[in-house]
Design a protein around this nucleic acid. Structure first.
Lengths: 210, 210
DNA sequence: ACAAATTTGTTAATTTTTTAACAATGTCCC
DNA sequence: GGGACATTGTTAAAAAATTAACAAATTTGT
Protein backbone atom coordinates (compact mmCIF):
# COMPACT_ATOMS: atom_id res chain seq x y z
CA UNK A 1 0.00 0.00 0.00
CA UNK A 2 2.60 2.56 1.09
CA UNK A 3 6.34 2.61 0.66
CA UNK A 4 7.73 -0.65 1.93
CA UNK A 5 10.78 0.95 3.61
CA UNK A 6 11.22 0.12 7.21
CA UNK A 7 9.52 2.63 9.44
CA UNK A 8 10.89 3.38 12.90
CA UNK A 9 8.62 1.95 15.53
CA UNK A 10 8.46 5.30 17.29
CA UNK A 11 7.16 6.94 14.14
CA UNK A 12 3.91 5.02 14.40
CA UNK A 13 3.31 6.27 17.92
CA UNK A 14 4.04 9.82 16.87
CA UNK A 15 1.62 9.62 13.95
CA UNK A 16 -1.14 8.85 16.44
CA UNK A 17 -0.12 11.90 18.37
CA UNK A 18 -0.05 14.13 15.30
CA UNK A 19 -3.45 12.90 14.21
CA UNK A 20 -5.07 13.87 17.50
CA UNK A 21 -3.67 17.37 17.24
CA UNK A 22 -4.72 17.69 13.61
CA UNK A 23 -8.26 16.65 14.40
CA UNK A 24 -8.47 19.29 17.10
CA UNK A 25 -7.04 21.92 14.79
CA UNK A 26 -9.50 21.04 12.08
CA UNK A 27 -12.41 21.19 14.50
CA UNK A 28 -11.28 24.67 15.52
CA UNK A 29 -11.55 25.63 11.87
CA UNK A 30 -7.83 26.13 11.35
CA UNK A 31 -6.95 25.80 7.68
CA UNK A 32 -3.18 25.40 7.80
CA UNK A 33 -0.67 24.20 10.35
CA UNK A 34 3.11 24.06 10.15
CA UNK A 35 5.42 21.26 11.19
CA UNK A 36 6.52 23.75 13.84
CA UNK A 37 3.04 23.88 15.34
CA UNK A 38 2.53 20.14 15.17
CA UNK A 39 5.90 19.65 16.83
CA UNK A 40 5.15 22.12 19.60
CA UNK A 41 1.84 20.48 20.39
CA UNK A 42 3.16 16.95 20.42
CA UNK A 43 6.51 17.53 22.05
CA UNK A 44 8.89 16.71 19.22
CA UNK A 45 11.06 18.68 16.78
CA UNK A 46 9.70 20.07 13.50
CA UNK A 47 12.34 18.08 11.61
CA UNK A 48 11.00 14.95 13.22
CA UNK A 49 7.48 15.71 12.07
CA UNK A 50 8.57 16.26 8.50
CA UNK A 51 10.77 13.19 8.53
CA UNK A 52 7.98 11.01 9.86
CA UNK A 53 5.63 12.21 7.16
CA UNK A 54 8.27 11.88 4.46
CA UNK A 55 8.24 8.10 4.84
CA UNK A 56 4.76 8.07 3.37
CA UNK A 57 4.65 10.86 0.83
CA UNK A 58 4.28 14.61 0.43
CA UNK A 59 1.33 16.04 2.26
CA UNK A 60 2.14 19.70 2.64
CA UNK A 61 2.80 22.79 0.58
CA UNK A 62 6.20 24.48 0.74
CA UNK A 63 6.05 27.92 2.19
CA UNK A 64 2.60 27.20 3.55
CA UNK A 65 2.19 24.13 5.69
CA UNK A 66 -0.38 21.38 5.95
CA UNK A 67 -4.13 21.32 5.78
CA UNK A 68 -5.18 19.72 9.07
CA UNK A 69 -8.16 17.78 7.79
CA UNK A 70 -6.34 16.50 4.75
CA UNK A 71 -3.26 15.45 6.69
CA UNK A 72 -5.44 13.90 9.37
CA UNK A 73 -7.15 11.77 6.75
CA UNK A 74 -3.84 10.72 5.27
CA UNK A 75 -2.42 9.72 8.63
CA UNK A 76 -5.54 7.80 9.58
CA UNK A 77 -5.23 5.93 6.33
CA UNK A 78 -1.55 5.23 6.96
CA UNK A 79 -2.41 3.85 10.37
CA UNK A 80 -5.11 1.67 8.86
CA UNK A 81 -7.81 3.65 10.61
CA UNK A 82 -9.87 4.51 7.55
CA UNK A 83 -12.23 1.78 8.74
CA UNK A 84 -13.49 0.40 12.03
CA UNK A 85 -11.87 -2.68 13.59
CA UNK A 86 -13.54 -5.32 15.73
CA UNK A 87 -11.43 -6.44 18.68
CA UNK A 88 -11.81 -9.33 21.09
CA UNK A 89 -10.69 -9.28 24.69
CA UNK A 90 -9.71 -12.43 26.53
CA UNK A 91 -9.80 -12.17 30.30
CA UNK A 92 -12.78 -10.61 32.01
CA UNK A 93 -11.02 -9.73 35.23
CA UNK A 94 -10.76 -6.18 36.41
CA UNK A 95 -8.33 -5.08 33.74
CA UNK A 96 -10.19 -6.86 30.96
CA UNK A 97 -13.47 -5.38 32.13
CA UNK A 98 -12.02 -1.88 32.25
CA UNK A 99 -10.51 -2.21 28.80
CA UNK A 100 -13.85 -3.49 27.50
CA UNK A 101 -15.53 -0.32 28.68
CA UNK A 102 -12.74 2.07 27.76
CA UNK A 103 -14.22 4.74 25.52
CA UNK A 104 -10.89 5.68 24.01
CA UNK A 105 -10.96 2.58 21.82
CA UNK A 106 -14.28 3.35 20.19
CA UNK A 107 -13.18 6.93 19.60
CA UNK A 108 -10.33 5.67 17.47
CA UNK A 109 -12.36 3.12 15.58
CA UNK A 110 -12.03 -0.02 17.67
CA UNK A 111 -15.17 -1.93 18.60
CA UNK A 112 -15.18 -4.62 21.24
CA UNK A 113 -16.64 -7.59 19.43
CA UNK A 114 -16.34 -10.23 22.11
CA UNK A 115 -15.18 -10.86 25.65
CA UNK A 116 -13.97 -14.32 26.66
CA UNK A 117 -12.89 -16.00 29.86
CA UNK A 118 -12.20 -19.47 31.20
CA UNK A 119 -13.78 -18.94 34.63
CA UNK A 120 -17.21 -20.66 34.51
CA UNK A 121 -18.45 -18.24 37.13
CA UNK A 122 -17.92 -15.30 34.79
CA UNK A 123 -19.55 -16.83 31.72
CA UNK A 124 -22.89 -15.26 30.96
CA UNK A 125 -22.28 -12.13 32.96
CA UNK A 126 -22.32 -8.90 31.06
CA UNK A 127 -19.80 -6.08 30.71
CA UNK A 128 -21.67 -3.15 29.28
CA UNK A 129 -23.96 -4.91 26.89
CA UNK A 130 -21.55 -7.65 25.90
CA UNK A 131 -21.89 -11.09 27.42
CA UNK A 132 -18.78 -12.89 28.58
CA UNK A 133 -18.40 -16.12 26.63
CA UNK A 134 -16.18 -19.17 27.18
CA UNK A 135 -12.89 -19.23 25.25
CA UNK A 136 -14.15 -22.35 23.49
CA UNK A 137 -16.39 -20.05 21.45
CA UNK A 138 -13.57 -17.69 20.55
CA UNK A 139 -12.50 -19.30 17.28
CA UNK A 140 -16.03 -19.46 15.95
CA UNK A 141 -16.65 -15.80 16.63
CA UNK A 142 -13.31 -14.68 15.24
CA UNK A 143 -13.88 -16.54 12.02
CA UNK A 144 -17.49 -15.51 11.68
CA UNK A 145 -16.63 -11.81 11.90
CA UNK A 146 -13.11 -11.94 10.42
CA UNK A 147 -11.71 -10.43 13.59
CA UNK A 148 -8.02 -9.68 13.34
CA UNK A 149 -7.24 -7.96 16.65
CA UNK A 150 -7.15 -9.29 20.19
CA UNK A 151 -6.29 -8.11 23.67
CA UNK A 152 -4.90 -10.47 26.31
CA UNK A 153 -5.78 -9.51 29.87
CA UNK A 154 -5.32 -12.82 31.65
CA UNK A 155 -2.81 -13.80 34.37
CA UNK A 156 0.77 -14.32 33.24
CA UNK A 157 0.51 -18.07 33.67
CA UNK A 158 -2.17 -18.51 31.02
CA UNK A 159 -1.07 -15.82 28.58
CA UNK A 160 0.83 -18.07 26.16
CA UNK A 161 -2.03 -20.56 26.07
CA UNK A 162 -4.53 -17.82 25.30
CA UNK A 163 -2.27 -16.33 22.63
CA UNK A 164 -2.00 -19.73 20.93
CA UNK A 165 -5.77 -20.07 20.87
CA UNK A 166 -6.10 -16.60 19.39
CA UNK A 167 -3.48 -17.24 16.72
CA UNK A 168 -5.08 -20.54 15.77
CA UNK A 169 -8.40 -18.77 15.40
CA UNK A 170 -6.91 -16.32 12.93
CA UNK A 171 -6.07 -13.28 15.05
CA UNK A 172 -3.24 -11.31 13.42
CA UNK A 173 -2.45 -8.62 15.98
CA UNK A 174 -2.29 -9.02 19.74
CA UNK A 175 -1.76 -6.72 22.67
CA UNK A 176 -0.56 -8.59 25.71
CA UNK A 177 -1.16 -6.97 29.08
CA UNK A 178 0.16 -9.97 31.01
CA UNK A 179 3.61 -9.31 32.46
CA UNK A 180 5.23 -12.17 30.63
CA UNK A 181 6.89 -12.74 27.27
CA UNK A 182 4.86 -14.79 24.88
CA UNK A 183 5.75 -15.88 21.37
CA UNK A 184 3.75 -15.77 18.20
CA UNK A 185 4.42 -17.21 14.73
CA UNK A 186 5.63 -15.18 11.78
CA UNK A 187 2.90 -12.97 10.40
CA UNK A 188 1.31 -12.17 13.72
CA UNK A 189 2.10 -8.81 15.31
CA UNK A 190 2.54 -8.78 19.05
CA UNK A 191 2.81 -5.87 21.39
CA UNK A 192 3.30 -6.07 25.11
CA UNK A 193 2.04 -3.44 27.50
CA UNK A 194 3.42 -3.84 31.00
CA UNK A 195 1.64 -1.43 33.30
CA UNK A 196 3.86 -1.98 36.33
CA UNK A 197 6.90 -1.46 34.13
CA UNK A 198 5.67 2.05 33.38
CA UNK A 199 5.82 2.90 37.06
CA UNK A 200 9.25 1.30 37.26
CA UNK A 201 10.45 3.65 34.56
CA UNK A 202 9.49 6.48 36.87
CA UNK A 203 11.16 5.07 39.98
CA UNK A 204 14.30 4.42 37.98
CA UNK A 205 14.49 8.06 37.00
CA UNK A 206 13.62 9.33 40.44
CA UNK A 207 16.51 7.28 41.73
CA UNK A 208 18.90 8.86 39.22
CA UNK A 209 18.51 12.29 40.74
CA UNK A 210 19.33 11.15 44.25
CA UNK B 1 23.90 6.17 43.15
CA UNK B 2 24.88 4.36 39.95
CA UNK B 3 26.91 5.48 37.01
CA UNK B 4 25.52 8.75 35.74
CA UNK B 5 25.91 7.87 32.05
CA UNK B 6 22.80 8.20 30.03
CA UNK B 7 20.88 4.96 29.86
CA UNK B 8 18.80 4.08 26.80
CA UNK B 9 15.14 4.32 27.61
CA UNK B 10 14.55 0.81 26.29
CA UNK B 11 17.11 -0.58 28.71
CA UNK B 12 14.87 0.23 31.64
CA UNK B 13 12.00 -1.71 30.15
CA UNK B 14 14.24 -4.68 29.47
CA UNK B 15 15.55 -4.69 33.01
CA UNK B 16 11.99 -5.19 34.21
CA UNK B 17 11.71 -8.09 31.85
CA UNK B 18 14.98 -9.65 32.97
CA UNK B 19 14.02 -9.30 36.61
CA UNK B 20 10.80 -11.24 36.13
CA UNK B 21 12.65 -14.08 34.49
CA UNK B 22 15.34 -14.08 37.17
CA UNK B 23 12.78 -14.26 39.93
CA UNK B 24 11.18 -17.27 38.29
CA UNK B 25 14.55 -18.94 37.81
CA UNK B 26 15.46 -18.36 41.43
CA UNK B 27 12.15 -19.78 42.61
CA UNK B 28 12.83 -22.88 40.55
CA UNK B 29 16.06 -23.25 42.49
CA UNK B 30 18.33 -22.55 39.51
CA UNK B 31 21.73 -21.36 40.69
CA UNK B 32 23.23 -19.92 37.52
CA UNK B 33 21.84 -18.49 34.30
CA UNK B 34 23.68 -17.23 31.23
CA UNK B 35 23.02 -14.07 29.24
CA UNK B 36 22.00 -16.52 26.54
CA UNK B 37 19.20 -17.94 28.68
CA UNK B 38 18.02 -14.54 29.83
CA UNK B 39 18.00 -13.37 26.24
CA UNK B 40 16.04 -16.38 25.04
CA UNK B 41 13.41 -15.95 27.72
CA UNK B 42 12.95 -12.23 27.18
CA UNK B 43 13.24 -12.09 23.43
CA UNK B 44 16.46 -10.14 22.98
CA UNK B 45 20.08 -10.94 22.06
CA UNK B 46 22.63 -12.09 24.63
CA UNK B 47 24.83 -9.12 23.71
CA UNK B 48 21.95 -6.84 24.56
CA UNK B 49 21.55 -8.40 27.98
CA UNK B 50 25.23 -7.98 28.80
CA UNK B 51 25.28 -4.45 27.45
CA UNK B 52 22.27 -3.45 29.49
CA UNK B 53 23.84 -4.81 32.66
CA UNK B 54 27.21 -3.28 31.86
CA UNK B 55 25.77 0.21 32.34
CA UNK B 56 25.44 -0.53 36.02
CA UNK B 57 28.34 -2.76 36.94
CA UNK B 58 29.62 -6.33 36.81
CA UNK B 59 27.17 -8.86 38.11
CA UNK B 60 28.29 -12.15 36.62
CA UNK B 61 31.25 -14.50 36.59
CA UNK B 62 33.12 -15.12 33.36
CA UNK B 63 32.84 -18.63 32.13
CA UNK B 64 29.94 -19.23 34.49
CA UNK B 65 27.04 -16.81 34.28
CA UNK B 66 24.87 -15.00 36.77
CA UNK B 67 23.29 -15.99 40.04
CA UNK B 68 19.58 -15.36 39.53
CA UNK B 69 18.75 -14.19 43.02
CA UNK B 70 21.75 -11.94 43.26
CA UNK B 71 21.20 -10.38 39.84
CA UNK B 72 17.50 -10.00 40.59
CA UNK B 73 18.32 -8.06 43.72
CA UNK B 74 20.75 -5.85 41.86
CA UNK B 75 18.26 -5.06 39.13
CA UNK B 76 15.50 -4.31 41.61
CA UNK B 77 17.84 -1.91 43.32
CA UNK B 78 18.76 -0.29 40.01
CA UNK B 79 15.09 0.18 39.23
CA UNK B 80 14.52 1.71 42.65
CA UNK B 81 12.40 -1.24 43.71
CA UNK B 82 14.28 -2.13 46.85
CA UNK B 83 11.43 -0.43 48.71
CA UNK B 84 7.69 -0.03 48.30
CA UNK B 85 6.20 3.08 46.68
CA UNK B 86 2.89 4.73 47.44
CA UNK B 87 1.02 5.89 44.34
CA UNK B 88 -2.02 8.10 43.92
CA UNK B 89 -4.53 7.78 41.12
CA UNK B 90 -6.54 10.73 39.88
CA UNK B 91 -9.68 9.81 37.99
CA UNK B 92 -12.03 7.20 39.37
CA UNK B 93 -13.72 6.34 36.11
CA UNK B 94 -13.56 2.88 34.68
CA UNK B 95 -9.89 2.98 33.81
CA UNK B 96 -8.89 4.60 37.10
CA UNK B 97 -10.94 2.06 39.01
CA UNK B 98 -9.37 -0.83 37.14
CA UNK B 99 -5.87 0.49 37.69
CA UNK B 100 -6.66 0.95 41.37
CA UNK B 101 -7.50 -2.72 41.66
CA UNK B 102 -4.76 -4.01 39.37
CA UNK B 103 -2.79 -6.58 41.33
CA UNK B 104 0.26 -6.27 39.14
CA UNK B 105 1.19 -2.99 40.83
CA UNK B 106 1.29 -4.41 44.35
CA UNK B 107 3.32 -7.36 43.10
CA UNK B 108 6.06 -5.00 42.00
CA UNK B 109 5.99 -2.87 45.12
CA UNK B 110 3.47 -0.17 44.29
CA UNK B 111 0.70 0.57 46.78
CA UNK B 112 -2.32 2.66 45.89
CA UNK B 113 -2.30 5.36 48.55
CA UNK B 114 -5.20 7.48 47.38
CA UNK B 115 -7.84 7.81 44.69
CA UNK B 116 -9.13 11.25 43.73
CA UNK B 117 -11.83 12.61 41.46
CA UNK B 118 -13.67 15.85 40.77
CA UNK B 119 -17.11 14.32 40.26
CA UNK B 120 -19.09 14.98 43.50
CA UNK B 121 -21.13 11.89 42.80
CA UNK B 122 -18.07 9.66 43.06
CA UNK B 123 -16.66 11.16 46.25
CA UNK B 124 -17.08 8.85 49.21
CA UNK B 125 -17.59 5.73 47.14
CA UNK B 126 -15.06 3.00 47.60
CA UNK B 127 -12.82 1.14 45.19
CA UNK B 128 -11.62 -1.94 47.01
CA UNK B 129 -11.14 -0.54 50.46
CA UNK B 130 -10.02 2.91 49.38
CA UNK B 131 -12.43 5.80 49.47
CA UNK B 132 -12.53 8.20 46.56
CA UNK B 133 -11.64 11.69 47.77
CA UNK B 134 -11.98 15.10 46.13
CA UNK B 135 -8.89 16.44 44.36
CA UNK B 136 -8.85 19.30 46.83
CA UNK B 137 -7.49 16.85 49.38
CA UNK B 138 -4.77 15.58 47.07
CA UNK B 139 -1.99 17.95 48.12
CA UNK B 140 -2.51 17.31 51.79
CA UNK B 141 -2.32 13.55 51.34
CA UNK B 142 0.70 13.70 49.05
CA UNK B 143 2.62 15.84 51.49
CA UNK B 144 1.57 13.87 54.53
CA UNK B 145 2.84 10.60 53.08
CA UNK B 146 5.64 11.98 50.90
CA UNK B 147 4.04 10.43 47.84
CA UNK B 148 6.14 10.82 44.71
CA UNK B 149 4.18 8.87 42.09
CA UNK B 150 0.86 9.56 40.44
CA UNK B 151 -1.34 8.12 37.74
CA UNK B 152 -3.62 10.31 35.61
CA UNK B 153 -6.75 8.55 34.38
CA UNK B 154 -9.00 11.50 33.63
CA UNK B 155 -10.44 12.68 30.30
CA UNK B 156 -8.02 14.40 27.93
CA UNK B 157 -9.59 17.78 28.56
CA UNK B 158 -8.68 17.87 32.24
CA UNK B 159 -5.35 16.07 32.11
CA UNK B 160 -3.10 19.14 32.12
CA UNK B 161 -5.04 20.68 35.00
CA UNK B 162 -4.71 17.51 37.05
CA UNK B 163 -1.02 17.21 36.25
CA UNK B 164 -0.44 20.77 37.44
CA UNK B 165 -2.19 20.00 40.72
CA UNK B 166 -0.08 16.90 41.19
CA UNK B 167 3.17 18.70 40.44
CA UNK B 168 2.29 21.51 42.82
CA UNK B 169 1.60 18.96 45.51
CA UNK B 170 5.08 17.48 45.11
CA UNK B 171 4.54 14.50 42.81
CA UNK B 172 7.76 13.73 40.93
CA UNK B 173 6.74 10.99 38.51
CA UNK B 174 3.52 10.79 36.53
CA UNK B 175 1.94 8.27 34.19
CA UNK B 176 -0.60 9.89 31.93
CA UNK B 177 -3.25 7.61 30.46
CA UNK B 178 -5.16 10.49 28.87
CA UNK B 179 -4.63 10.62 25.11
CA UNK B 180 -3.17 14.10 25.14
CA UNK B 181 0.25 15.66 25.55
CA UNK B 182 0.76 17.42 28.83
CA UNK B 183 3.81 19.29 30.05
CA UNK B 184 5.62 19.14 33.34
CA UNK B 185 8.43 21.27 34.76
CA UNK B 186 12.05 20.20 34.92
CA UNK B 187 12.60 17.58 37.56
CA UNK B 188 9.32 15.79 37.08
CA UNK B 189 9.31 12.60 35.04
CA UNK B 190 6.36 12.07 32.76
CA UNK B 191 5.34 9.00 30.84
CA UNK B 192 2.38 8.70 28.57
CA UNK B 193 0.54 5.46 27.97
CA UNK B 194 -1.89 5.65 25.09
CA UNK B 195 -3.96 2.48 25.02
CA UNK B 196 -5.66 3.15 21.70
CA UNK B 197 -2.27 3.89 20.15
CA UNK B 198 -1.18 0.36 20.99
CA UNK B 199 -3.98 -1.02 18.85
CA UNK B 200 -3.06 1.44 16.13
CA UNK B 201 0.44 0.04 16.09
CA UNK B 202 -1.14 -3.31 15.25
CA UNK B 203 -3.40 -2.02 12.49
CA UNK B 204 -0.48 -0.16 10.96
CA UNK B 205 1.50 -3.37 10.68
CA UNK B 206 -1.45 -5.39 9.47
CA UNK B 207 -1.80 -2.83 6.73
CA UNK B 208 1.82 -3.22 5.71
CA UNK B 209 1.33 -6.81 4.66
CA UNK B 210 -1.60 -6.07 2.43
C1' DA C 1 48.56 -29.60 34.91
C1' DC C 2 46.86 -28.34 30.68
C1' DA C 3 43.83 -28.14 26.69
C1' DA C 4 39.07 -27.52 25.33
C1' DA C 5 34.87 -25.41 26.15
C1' DT C 6 32.03 -21.65 28.33
C1' DT C 7 30.69 -17.26 29.25
C1' DT C 8 31.40 -12.61 30.82
C1' DG C 9 32.75 -7.66 30.19
C1' DT C 10 34.28 -4.48 26.90
C1' DT C 11 35.63 -2.43 22.76
C1' DA C 12 34.75 -1.85 17.89
C1' DA C 13 31.67 -1.97 13.96
C1' DT C 14 27.20 -1.58 12.23
C1' DT C 15 22.74 -0.07 12.01
C1' DT C 16 19.09 2.88 13.19
C1' DT C 17 17.17 7.15 14.51
C1' DT C 18 17.33 11.93 15.22
C1' DT C 19 18.78 16.47 14.22
C1' DA C 20 20.51 19.99 11.28
C1' DA C 21 21.03 22.31 6.97
C1' DC C 22 19.41 24.05 2.81
C1' DA C 23 17.46 24.33 -1.91
C1' DA C 24 12.84 24.62 -3.77
C1' DT C 25 8.49 26.55 -3.50
C1' DG C 26 4.92 29.53 -2.13
C1' DT C 27 2.82 33.86 0.18
C1' DC C 28 2.53 38.64 1.35
C1' DC C 29 3.23 43.41 0.96
C1' DC C 30 4.61 47.44 -1.18
C1' DG D 1 6.37 42.55 -10.29
C1' DG D 2 9.93 41.84 -7.01
C1' DG D 3 12.04 41.34 -2.57
C1' DA D 4 11.48 39.63 2.18
C1' DC D 5 9.77 35.99 4.72
C1' DA D 6 7.97 31.35 5.72
C1' DT D 7 7.84 26.49 5.30
C1' DT D 8 8.27 22.10 3.05
C1' DG D 9 10.87 17.97 1.34
C1' DT D 10 15.27 16.06 1.20
C1' DT D 11 19.93 15.27 1.81
C1' DA D 12 23.79 15.27 4.92
C1' DA D 13 25.65 15.06 9.54
C1' DA D 14 25.38 13.66 14.16
C1' DA D 15 23.90 10.94 17.82
C1' DA D 16 22.17 6.85 19.80
C1' DA D 17 21.36 2.09 20.08
C1' DT D 18 22.23 -2.52 18.73
C1' DT D 19 25.05 -6.21 17.30
C1' DA D 20 29.37 -8.47 16.67
C1' DA D 21 33.87 -9.74 18.04
C1' DC D 22 37.19 -11.05 21.18
C1' DA D 23 40.36 -11.02 25.25
C1' DA D 24 39.97 -12.38 30.08
C1' DA D 25 38.34 -15.47 33.38
C1' DT D 26 36.44 -19.87 34.83
C1' DT D 27 35.26 -24.73 34.70
C1' DT D 28 35.68 -29.49 33.10
C1' DG D 29 37.82 -33.58 31.53
C1' DT D 30 41.83 -36.23 30.91
Amino acid sequence: MFKKFKIPEATVGRLTSYSRFLKEADEKGISTVSSQQIAKATGVTPAQVRKDLAYFGEFGTRGVGYNPRELYNYIMKILGLDRRWPVIIVGAGRLGAALSMYRGFAERGFDIAGIFDVDPEKIGRKIGDIEIRPVEELAERVKEHSIKLGIVAVPAASAQEVVDIMVDAGIKGIINFAPVNVSVPEGVVLRRVDLASQLEYLTFHLGESR
